[in-house]
């Protein structure tokens, strides 16, 4: 099994420690959602993997070999940045051409299909494209490079809802045709929730959650009911947060005691990925009761 392994990686910028010992393993044929609040180091982690930055400590390996200045390893990794790094004066067709030259391969047929689906004019200069179309060009490149690990940093930035929907469809189609690993760092969690099969959450520079997406969805529960009853039912369970209104209490947990019968007047609802993310990454503020 192909593995991209990040072990105890730390990175600081000036006095700010962005990553404080990240441990995560990306395996082949998976779509990962890399989640975290603003500034927690998602982009930094992706840039470290792609060798654009060097880690202060720790190591990143692809099938056991360090990815640092390792041409063979980097040939198998592609990072689509949130920024447009291609020269603005160049045409879209040039971007495809140079990518082919640099990677030694490019799925021309898929590129032609995507150009047609998204109505991208390949004769346009990048500087003339809108933000959304610039993103589309980068996405086409990312889907067409012959890499085993494709890292997408804010992949749908500036895309309208129909184009985002189309992109998710095309991503799934190309993933089915040629399974490879996608790591998607985004804040539009609900939109990717049906795509990802593994969720990685970064908080305060470390990975706080790395779990199968379906399992996570099954675990995330919101329990509501009379405060005393809910507290009693969740007595020995770790609760992420509670909110109280009058005598009622809502508790969010990943560890609901499903084997115990639900008391009368208490309801249990599944949390979607976005709600889970909010509860998991909420700053420490204790219970909110009013």
């Amino acid at each position: 099994m192909t593995e991209l392994k990040v072990t105890n990686v730390a990175k600081h910028f000036g006095r700010k420690n962005v990553l404080n010992g990240i441990n995560v393993t990306f395996t082949d044929g998976q779509i990962y959602g890399l989640l975290g609040r603003n500034g927690v180091g998602k982009s930094t982690l992706l840039r470290l993997i792609n060798n654009r930055l060097l880690a202060d400590r720790g190591q990143i390996t692809l099938d056991g070999a360090s990815v640092v200045d390792n041409e063979a390893a980097q040939n198998r990794i592609f990072l689509m940045s949130a920024e447009m790094l291609y020269p603005a004066e160049q045409k879209v067709s040039w971007v495809f051409k140079i990518t082919k030259q640099l990677y030694g391969g490019f799925d021309d047929a898929l590129a032609a299909h995507l150009v047609s689906v998204f109505h991208v004019d390949t004769t346009s200069r990048l500087s003339r494209l809108s933000t959304g179309y610039k993103t589309l060009v980068k996405l086409i490149v990312a889907l067409c490079v012959p890499c085993d690990f494709v890292l997408l940093d804010e992949p749908v930035l500036g895309l309208d809802a129909p184009n985002r929907h189309l992109f998710y469809q095309e991503l799934m189609a190309t993933f089915t045709d040629r399974p490879r690993t996608f790591v998607i760092a985004t804040h539009l969690i609900e939109e990717i929730s049906q795509l990802v099969n593994q969720v990685v959450v970064i908080e305060r520079g470390v990975v706080t959650l790395d779990q199968d997406a379906d399992e996570l969805r099954q675990r995330g529960k919101m329990i509501t009911g009379p405060a005393a009853t809910v507290r009693d039912w969740l007595a020995d369970v770790k609760v992420l947060r509670t909110t109280a209104l009058g005598g009622m209490l809502a508790a969010y947990t990943l560890d609901a005691p499903l084997e115990k019968p639900l008391p009368a007047g208490v309801t249990m609802e599944a949390m979607n990925l976005q709600q889970l993310f909010i509860e998991l990454t909420r700053e420490e503020e204790g219970s909110h009761e009013s």
């Binding site: 792609n50 060798n51 654009r52 200045d69 390792n70 041409e71 980097q74 040939n75 990794i77 592609f78 990072l79 940045s81 920024e83 790094l85 291609y86 020269p87 140079i98 990518t99 640099l102 990677y103």
Partner: peptide
């Protein structure tokens, strides 16, 4: 401005 090159998997020795 090596980001362009790094985006295309260039490595530092290259």
């Amino acid at each position: 401005n090596p980001d362009f090159a790094f985006q295309n998997s260039m490595i530092r020795p290259q």
